[in-house]
Amino acid sequence: MLPVGLLLAACGGPSAADAGGSVDGKGDVTLNVGDQKGGYEAILRAAGELKDLDYRIKWSTFTSGPPLLEAMNAKAVDIGGVGNTPPVFAAGAGSKIVVVGASHGSAAGEAIVVPKDSPLKRPADLKGRSVAVAQGSSAHFQLVASLKKAGLGIGDVKLKYLQPADALAAFSRGKVDAWAIWDPYTSQVLRTADARVLTTGEGVVNGLGFQVASPSALKDPAKSKAIGDLLERLRRAQDWVFAHPEEWAKVWSKDTGLPYEIALDSVKRSQGTRVPVAVDAAAVASEQEIADTFAELKLIPGKFAFEDFVDPRFNGRLPASSTAPRTYGKATVR
């Protein structure tokens, strides 16, 4: 069984946010950055990208994307990073958010896991079974898409909307038949629990992650300039992670409490594969598909145009969103 305390360390603790984090840089401008444990602050610091800032950063740590975007809607956060589904739920609810950056990575860490001794062998076997998933998370759409590919609908399974810590407890105690999850939780459960992968998001989901900003911050010239600089630093930091997977895994392990081997698994499986890409028409179309899917399921109020929540001003010369994720050669992970 995976210790609950370890999972809590990895997802940032039981609260929605830990506010008032460290402040980096100097100057009159303060950028309020929403983060997740072992996220942007850790990557930027490890890559040396928090040096020589001419603005200040105040960090707030959240357990997942949805509460981060809720804080952004309340103007408590200027910019933060999330997966491919939280912006859809936030935009569908009319939240004040703007997608300003993107990255494309492997979807191998987006997985539906089952106990090793489970009779379930393929996604179609989930019919009538209970599945734990965090509502509005990237895993939520991966579950919907995987079921659709198997000829099933979301009504064919018994959904249990649970955040990771509660889902882990339910999964470990046999209270649910399967768990739809994302890395590093995928790497954790495969290393430390009697679990195996039923299916992954490869070929099913878009593998995109986004940087999302507050409209009010973008309208402030000084904050907008700081956001552009932070995005450039994040892109360089992502390049550094791919070039230094073992070094980053050590830093990430220390920051999150994850054992080193789990952190390295996650880096090589998904987290270190990310490529900075443009928020282009293809990315918008892919997100529109997610939005339309959840609208049809009546999980968001109604249909809307995802492009209305996108600002491409920071795209620069970034490659297309369809650019292939990085890979670590023939390296394999459990």
Rank of each mutant, 00 (worst) to 15 (best):
V23Q: 14
K26M: 09
R56F: 06
D255K: 14
S95C: 12
G136E: 12
G92F: 12
V157Q: 03
L69Q: 11
A19Y: 10
A324Y: 01
L8M: 12
A226R: 06
G65A: 12
K127R: 15
G39S: 14
V267R: 00
V251D: 04
F314T: 01
K158S: 11
W182C: 13
I112N: 00
A150F: 03
G5W: 01
D194M: 01
D311H: 07
W240Y: 09
A16N: 11
D229V: 01
A102P: 03
D54N: 14
M1N: 06
D311R: 11
Q163G: 10
P86W: 03
L7M: 14
D166C: 00
L8T: 01
D156G: 12
G12T: 08
Q135P: 02
A102F: 01
F242I: 00
K160L: 09
V275R: 15
R173P: 00
A169K: 15
R235Y: 15
G20R: 07
P245K: 07
L68Y: 07
A124Q: 13
F141Y: 15
P87Q: 09
A17Q: 13
M1H: 08
P221G: 11
T256Q: 12
I290C: 01
L31N: 12
Q238C: 04
V241P: 06
V98F: 00
A169S: 14
G13P: 06
G27F: 10
V77W: 08
D229W: 03
G153V: 05
K160P: 02
V144Y: 00
P164T: 08
S216K: 13
A74T: 04
A331V: 15
R326H: 12
A71N: 06
G316Q: 07
T61E: 08
H104Q: 13
E110G: 01
K303G: 06
R313V: 12
